[in-house]
C-alpha cells in the first residue's frame, strides 16, 4: 500500500534513453542512478558519471524540478512509457529516485517486465482515465494517489476507486519480495529432464 505524491510527465513514448542516458550505463553497479534519472531533461548542463549532483544546473522547466513534486513516488505518464533499450538501469534509476509506482495507458514490454524485478509497480489505466488524473494532478498541489497492490486499486483524493489488472504471479512475487531464481531452481528436475530429452532430439544444441 502506497499513498504517494504524484509527479506528472506529460509525454508519450518516453524512451529508456531519456530515463537514463547512455553515459551512466558504464557503471558496473546496480545502485546510485537516481541523481541521473531523466538527466538530459532535468539538468541544463551535460552530465557525466561521477559528477556531484549539487554542482549541476537543474532545468527549472522540467517537471521533476518543480518544488511541488519534490518527494514524488508515483509517476503519471502517457502511452508506451519505457520504449526502446532493454536497459534495466531505467527502473533502477526510477527506484533509486524514489518512484514506487507508475501509472500510464501502456508500457513497452521489456521495461514493464523489468519494473517488477525492481519493486516498481507499473499500473495500466485507460488513456481517458490517465488524462483525467493529469488534469486533477495539475489542478491540485500536493495531489496524492493511494495505490493498493493487494486489492489492485488506485484511489483518488476525491474517493474514486480505479481498479487495475496485474498478473497473479508477479503480484505475489512483488508483495513478498521473492527471489525469482530461487523459485525457478525449485523446478531443477524439470529443467534437467527437458535437457535430457533435447539432447536426443536436437544434439547440436549441446555440442
Amino acid at each position: 500500500m502506497l499513498n504517494g505524491l504524484v509527479c506528472p510527465l506529460d509525454r508519450a513514448n518516453v524512451d529508456t534513453d531519456a530515463i537514463i542516458p547512455k553515459q551512466f550505463l558504464k557503471s558496473i553497479k546496480r545502485s546510485g542512478f537516481g541523481p541521473n534519472l531523466f538527466d538530459e531533461w532535468r539538468y541544463l548542463d551535460h552530465g557525466e558519471p561521477g559528477m556531484d549532483p549539487a554542482s549541476r544546473q537543474p532545468n527549472p522547466d522540467f517537471v521533476l524540478n518543480f518544488p511541488r513534486y519534490k518527494g514524488a513516488s508515483v509517476l503519471l505518464a502517457r502511452d508506451n512509457f519505457g520504449c526502446g533499450s532493454s536497459r534495466e538501469h531505467a527502473p533502477w534509476a526510477l527506484e533509486d529516485y524514489g518512484f514506487r509506482a507508475i501509472i500510464a495507458p501502456s508500457y513497452a514490454d521489456i521495461f514493464y517486465n523489468n519494473c517488477f524485478k525492481n519493486g516498481i509497480l507499473p499500473i495500466v489505466l485507460e488513456a481517458a482515465t490517465v488524462g483525467r488524473l493529469f488534469a486533477e494532478c495539475d489542478a491540485s498541489e500536493g495531489y496524492r494517489l493511494l495505490v493498493d497492490l493487494d486489492k489492485q486499486t488506485v484511489t483518488t483524493p476525491g474517493g474514486e476507486v480505479l481498479a487495475f489488472e496485474v498478473d497473479g504471479g508477479r503480484k505475489h512475487r512483488l508483495l513478498n519480495g521473492l527471489d525469482d531464481i530461487g523459485l525457478t531452481l525449485l523446478q531443477s528436475d524439470k529443467i534437467k529432464a527437458y535437457e535430457e530429452r533435447r539432447k536426443t532430439e536436437a544434439p547440436w544444441l549441446f555440442a
Partner: peptide, 11 residues
Amino acid sequence: GTSEVEHVLAT
C-alpha cells in the same frame, strides 16, 4: 533486462 540475464545464467 539484467535481472533476467542473471536468471538465464543461473537456470
